[in-house]
């Protein structure tokens, strides 16, 4: 019986120590990823943004993306108007990883395409933080984040999907697909007399449910990294 207890205690101890080792592993992994990201003090990137929101009918837009440490990010359409999802600016990798005030939990591995990724759940230590939970999918070989899911208290869930290419050394993606929750757009009543051209909205319930999700796809064509970005760009 005593022997059995010893064995059980040993197993528990082993398990605990294993978990600690695992935790140390993911923290180290995040640190490595962060190290890459931290190499970038600022950047100015040229990109094309494709917005896919049910009530928003917009063309693809050529945009400039500006970033400056610690977490200033601005997406600008210099030739026209673009609707930029607010989450795409506030929920970025730097926001997710900076500060380090979170508990990282290893949640195993998964595959994105052919790449095996490690799933790490980040729990903020501040109970009042807007972000409730972030899950990042880290490509351990390239030391980049391939996917990040964030759940917030007030603005629903966000998902970032990233593809990397020649700027992966800086942790900068070639393409980001940003999926977010959005409410329906409602025009204030009585504002317009609209032309009823007889077309109906034949959208199914599934389509309508889908309309709660918005998507913004940003494909970067070039980055200018660490050459300085003027402060007033972010105003």
């Amino acid at each position: 019986m005593i022997r059995l207890k010893k064995i059980a205690t040993l197993v528990v101890l082993i398990l605990i120590s294993f978990a600690c080792v695992q935790a140390q592993d993911v923290n180290a992994l995040i640190a490595k990823v962060k190290f890459n990201i931290d190499k970038v003090n600022d950047y100015e990137a040229t990109a094309r943004m494709i917005t896919n929101v049910s009530f928003l009918k917009v063309p693809d837009a050529d945009v400039k993306v500006y970033f400056k440490k610690p977490n200033q990010l601005k997406i600008k359409n210099e030739k026209g108007i673009s609707f930029v999802p607010k989450g795409a600016v506030s929920i970025n990798l730097n926001n997710i990883l900076s500060g380090g005030k979170y508990t990282a939990i290893d949640a195993g591995t998964d595959k994105i395409g052919n790449t095996t990724v490690r799933i790490v759940k980040l729990l903020p230590e501040d109970d009042n933080a807007d972000v409730v939970l972030s899950t990042v999918y880290i490509d351990e070989a390239a030391l980049v984040i391939r996917r990040a899911k964030t759940t917030t208290r007030t603005n629903g869930s966000y998902q970032l999907e990233m593809n990397y290419g020649k700027y992966s050394a800086f942790g900068l993606p070639d393409k980001i697909v940003f999926t977010f929750d959005t409410k329906d757009y409602k025009l204030p009543k009585g504002v317009t007399f609209d032309f009823d051209d007889g077309t109906q909205n034949n959208r199914s319930a599934a389509d309508k449910a889908k309309s709660k999700n918005g998507k913004a796809e940003i494909t970067f064509s070039s980055y200018v990294v660490n050459k300085g970005v003027a402060e007033d760009v972010f105003k």
Binding site: L56, V58, D184, Y185, L187, V191, T192
Partner: peptide, 13 residues
Amino acid sequence: VFRSKGDESQILL
């Protein structure tokens, strides 16, 4: 362009 279409509203750019 802000538009109401049936029971929905749209923003066109």
